[in-house]
């Protein structure tokens, strides 16, 4: 998959050679997983004496463990499973995700989150705009569209699975809710590792970065809420607080705040850093993204030129340097 993306970069000869050496070095540096790749119906060698737990993507045929997916074999103690690279997001309870509303239904919203099914966000599992804890009334139900509409991008947490396998979300804190004035990027979910912190405020840029576990990444203007929590609870309250707190900012046509040009540029810069890293297939961390953005500034590369071939090659080479120095520290 990476090859396909990289082919579209139009590298010249020297750049291609540099990129290939960099990627080769990366493969040499990392404990090689290339040997453990399997295709469908390949045998997975296991030591039957120790006992084996067959995990996701494996099945048994004539006493042998056989892969049912393409990917990399992972082993955790006795558990053997296949991690696919090009597959949909597999939710786990507590994951922070970014999704897009595709339907406003009775008492719930349906969200596209790159899972095999649509996720469900119940009206009862989110905070109301007025912030009061109470039973949801019929009026609340009628006002659902004023909270989230179709095509809104929102941020929520995975609450759990129902008996029939459908996925439920919750947004019970002020940091969840509607995301406005920013960019949504989609990357393969395996690039995002589960961390303690998925909300990031990049102070130097005045930008919020949300790394959704489902591979949806939100980069938007930083939103300051009264109680210091990063993101507002969507809906009307945020708009009101924004309008009252920032008198100096010019208002748009519908009374919305306009973003400053500088912030817009910063958003694009961070977004392009994410794009470069995901094209190269490097896992996305705040540090990595910030480093790429910083490098583009120090090298004097325009935001639009970050997607060019040269910056890709430089990023790959920088990653090699980083991993080499990590190894040296360890060794």
């Amino acid at each position: 998959m990476r090859d396909l993306h990289l082919q579209q970069l139009r590298l010249n000869q020297t750049q291609r050679v540099r990129l290939q050496t960099a990627l080769q070095k990366l493969q040499d540096v990392s404990p090689s997983s290339a040997a453990a790749t399997v295709a469908v119906a390949d045998n997975i060698p296991v030591n039957h004496e120790d006992g084996v737990l067959k995990g996701h993507g494996t099945s048994e045929l004539d006493g042998q463990v056989v892969a049912t997916l393409c990917g990399v074999v992972e082993r955790v103690n006795k558990l053997v499973y296949v991690r696919t690279l090009r597959a949909r997001y597999k939710p786990e309870i507590g994951d922070i995700i970014v999704g897009r509303v595709i339907e406003v239904a009775t008492k719930h919203w349906r969200l596209e989150i790159n899972f095999s099914q649509d996720a469900v966000l119940m009206l009862s599992s989110m905070n109301l705009p007025d912030g009061i804890q109470r039973r949801r009334t019929a009026t609340d139900e009628l006002n659902m569209r004023s909270i989230f509409e179709e095509n809104d991008v929102i941020c929520a947490e995975v609450r759990g699975f129902q008996h029939d396998g459908s996925l439920h979300l919750q947004a019970r804190s002020l940091k969840y809710g509607k995301l406005k004035s920013g960019q949504l990027l989609t990357v393969p979910p395996y690039l995002i590792k589960r961390r303690k912190q998925h909300f990031h405020h990049l102070e130097n840029y005045g930008v919020d970065l949300i790394l959704g576990c489902n591979g949806f990444i939100w980069i938007g203007e930083h939103v300051e809420t009264s109680n210091g929590v990063m993101e507002g609870d969507g809906g009307n309250k945020v708009e009101e607080s924004n309008e009252s707190s920032s008198h100096s900012v010019p208002l748009g046509e519908k009374g919305q705040r306009l973003m400053s040009l500088e912030t817009r540029q910063h958003i694009c810069q961070i977004a392009n850093a994410v794009r470069v890293l995901s094209t190269l297939g490097f896992s996305l961390t705040t540090e990595g993204i910030l480093e790429a953005a910083k490098a583009s500034i120090s090298l004097g590369i325009n935001t639009k030129d970050m997607l060019g071939a040269e910056f890709h090659v430089q990023t790959a080479e920088r990653e090699v340097g980083r991993r080499m120095s990590l190894l040296r520290k360890k060794g």
Partner: peptide, 11 residues
């Protein structure tokens, strides 16, 4: 199908 990460017994 294999590329899409769908579980199969064999190709």
């Amino acid at each position: 199908l294999a590329d899409a990460g769908i579980m199969m017994y064999d190709l």
